[in-house]
Design a protein around this nucleic acid. Sequence first.
DNA 1: GCCGTTTTCGGCCCGACTGTTTTCAGTCG
Length: 574
Amino acid sequence: MDNSEIAAVFDEIADLLDLQGVAFKPIAYRRAARNIESMEIDINEVAADGKIEDIPGVGKAMAKKIEEMIRTGKLAYLDDLRSEVPSGLVELLKIPDVGPKTAVVLHNELGITSVAMLKEAVLSHRLHGIKGFGEKTEERILQGIRTVESKSGRTLMGIALPVAEAFVDHLKESLPLDKICLAGSLRRGKETVGDIDILVGDDKPATVMDAFVSYPEVDSLLMKGPTKSSVRLRSGLQVDIRAVESKSWGAALCYFTGSKEHNVSMRRIGVEKGLKLNEYGLFERESGTMVAGATEEEVYEALGLRYVEPEIRENSGELEASKQGTLPVLVNRADIRGDFHVHTSWSDGANKVEDVVSKAMAKGYEYIAITDHSQSLRIANGLSPERLSKQIEVVRKADELGGGRVRVLAGSEVDIRADGSLDFPSSLLKDLDIVIGSVHSRFKMEKNEMTKRVVNAVSSGQIDILGHPTGRLIGKRAPYALDLEKVFSAAKDSGVCMELNSFPDRLDLADANCRHAMNSGVKVAIATDAHSVEQMDYIKYGITTARRGWLEAKDVLNTVRGKDILKRLHGGRP
DNA sequence: GCCGTTTTCGGCCCGACTGTTTTCAGTCG
């Protein structure tokens, strides 16, 4: 069983214990689940080294359970719990506003054991007779069921961010707000978000709430209070807004940005120092005197910590690093000097080479690589060797016209064939400045075979970058079976970089894998895979993901200066 | 069930909003 499977078991245990009314244990299991899930090392390896109990939140009891799962693929304790709790109740917990208490009452009073049964009961108004259940509760539960049925969960950052920014612009236009900021998982740059969080610092919160709920894109009002409101937009996205006074701005930004686990750890550190942290500030526990709160920096400082960038507030070692002063200086937009992966109308892109070059100049890049598909990818109008030779000439001309302001690199996104060989002869690849090797076929290969295939290509000495290394499409296609450890090791030996593909539904390598690559001594190349000049702006999603992976400028290939880049690539290698 | 520069036992993060109640439990973030 892998990390995510074991985390899922612990989550289910937490739900089942919740339903039994057991206190504290659910919190412990969930905490362990989050830590196991976000670990970059395979838990099977940790177990083999006898280090399970070193995982934060995992003690003797959980370690034994993990060992049992690894050994047998099952867990007797889970089976026992399942037999004690009516099946189906866990499913009810997925409905918003239905928690363990409500689920148990619904079962005891009406014998409900599934979402379908609950829906039926609500529609026939059978909840009405139960103590504590009124009309509004029925309506809320029905709404919740519809939400679960209609939405498959989370939204891509690349979809949510433009929506959120438009909403913020609307608020800024309607009110003179000096402090307004996106918060939550969107500010942390997670690849998908559950909702949009907006924080406002203003001394008249009521007017803010009015402007918020009257946004034309609002479909329905979910909740409206004096300082906190929620709406659902026509797009289906939920938006939460919270208003606080200016003196609490920093504390509120911390609180509202999360992650929840990061916040909990922050508060624990506060407790140790006799301090209480909430969204209004940091206070002395005894006297109630405010110690900090106006800015995030002063909140961290008052807790004896260095400021932690939002992207890494995931309780995965950042607070320890903060305490010790060993936080990374994360890569940022200003460090990025070029894009390595862009398609043109030569294959399946929308724009001409010169349009791409203009866009690159507008973005202030020092270099831009033209990398169309290779011959095997017929569906994408992949280039034959002859057409690639012609394109190289066009690219060389564009480079001259660029007048040295932007280096235009001749490249290719070459298919890695099933046996690991490349889709162009090496004699042709030698004429290029940069070669990306990518897997575009036979995704379902068995793990050993796929690993051999990719390692072959990486070790060929003919590619600079492994394109979208795991092939995942967020929410649509799982990563192909691949032993990343072996790929990273081969990449390190042959000086090949891993691409961080910035397409919103790829973000491949994912954040945790970026960190893994860095720790394996492999550089990451942030690239867009743009198929139109507009998509070259997706670079921001790649940068955000790199930051979430703790990458610094030195870990990223495209922070290299224009005058040095050729020496670092294919063409520059002996 | 986990954890410890106050602790190996006794704690475990904190507050807003809602609904249905006459003061609060449940849920969420």
